[in-house]
Computed example of a mutant assay.
Amino acid sequence: MRDLSPKPANTAGPAPEFPWPEAKTCALFPAFDVDAESVWLGADPQNARRLITRSYGGYEARVGIPKILEVLRRHEVKATFFVTGWAIDAHPRTCEAILKDGHEIAHHGYLHLRPDTADEATLVDEMDRAIETMQRVLGITPAGYRAPWGETSDEQMELLKSRGIRYSSSFRDDIRPYRHELASGKGPVEIPVNYSFDDWSYGLTHRTSPRAMFGREEVLAIWKDEFDQTREWGGVTTMVMHPQVTGRPMRIRILDQFLDHVRGYDDVWIGRGVDFTDHFEACEAAAS
């Protein structure tokens, strides 16, 4: 039976007002969800027979990620790529190129299955299989995690803690990092997401889930306005970009022009998820 009692979904206290590094007044967390074909397979196993549907995800390794890496190099930005274990197994050279440029690769499940609908065995398999893949193929152990399909559960949060995952970037309930409070005690640091920066909502349509697509002017205006107000509030703007969307020709211009806009300010700290976590933990230790 589900617990519908009146209590907050998140029991963590208010986000601490830790200063940003380098005397900056706000922050940008550029982050990409590398689902590749796994997002389509995880949504419907029958898509294994639908080569054109899967080709949406295949675009990431063939074109999207290389073009995004070019843009990030031009702006001297280091980002985090939340990559499914399946995508690492399928596209190892693409993932190696991400690491070579100094970006972070973090955990995004193995087959992009929803944690809130999975049984315990599936949760553990999705977690451990992806970690094993990262260690075996890339020689890394992930510090961070982003929930596939933008959803999680109490069981999944405890699993993150038990596997040594230091941070999550999935929740939508703040503009500054904070630490989760779990039933077992202190949990991972959260770098909260701004859903306005989820490019999937603006730029991908499919025959089984048709939706209106938004042009460059509309999306860029939303991104600029959200960033500018978050900057005034001293928060972090956390992005949720997908190379099979933002890596498309017109849409990569939105990212390019948005980074131009951000670089127009001199008070913005830009970091990877692990950098945010290192800073948060250092401030936390200093305050204790």
Rank of each mutant, 00 (worst) to 15 (best):
V193E: 05
V137Y: 06
I222C: 13
R179M: 14
E96G: 04
P210Q: 09
I252H: 01
Y167E: 05
R163S: 04
L255K: 00
P142S: 03
S209M: 03
T230L: 07
I88A: 02
S288P: 11
T230G: 05
R231M: 10
T11W: 08
L4T: 14
T25F: 06
S196W: 15
V124H: 05
F214W: 14
Q135R: 06
T277E: 14
I88G: 02
D174H: 11
T133C: 01
V268T: 12
L72V: 10
M213K: 03
V245L: 03
R216C: 14
T11R: 04
E104K: 02
T25Y: 09
P8V: 09
A9L: 13
P177E: 01
R129D: 13
N194C: 09
M213N: 04
A282K: 10
G109M: 00
G164P: 04
Q156T: 13
W86H: 15
A48E: 15
P210W: 12
V39Q: 14
D154C: 01
A61F: 00
E232H: 11
L220P: 11
S288N: 15
L111P: 04
S209Q: 06
P66K: 02
Q156C: 06
G187Y: 05
Y59D: 10
S196L: 10
T246D: 04
A43D: 12
L220H: 13
E158A: 03
T133M: 00
Y195K: 02
R248V: 03
A282L: 09
L204A: 05
D35K: 00
P8Y: 02
D44S: 11
E126D: 12
A61K: 01
F82A: 00
S288G: 15
E104L: 00
R272T: 11
F171V: 04
H108P: 06
K24Q: 15
E284R: 05
D267W: 06
R172V: 10
W223D: 03
I105C: 08
S209I: 11
G273V: 07
D174C: 08
A15Y: 06
A106G: 06
R248A: 12
D101S: 07
D267E: 10
T122Q: 10
Q135Y: 12
T141L: 05
S170V: 03
N10I: 13
L113P: 09
S209T: 14
A143N: 10
E158S: 07
P92R: 00
T122Y: 07
F171C: 02
R73P: 00
Q244G: 02
L182E: 11
V189K: 06
M250H: 13
E281W: 13
Y265V: 11
S162T: 13
R207C: 07
G235D: 09
Q244C: 03
Y145H: 14
A23Y: 15
H242I: 07
A27S: 07
G64C: 01
G109Y: 01
V262M: 03
I175G: 14
T94C: 07
C283V: 14
S169M: 00
M250K: 09
M213S: 10
V236L: 08
H261F: 08
I52G: 12
L259G: 07
P66Y: 02
H103S: 05
D174F: 14
D173G: 08
W149R: 07
Q46R: 14
H242A: 05
D174G: 11
K67W: 01
A90G: 11
I140E: 06
E22F: 13
T53A: 11
R179L: 10
R179A: 12
R62I: 01
V262K: 02
R73N: 08
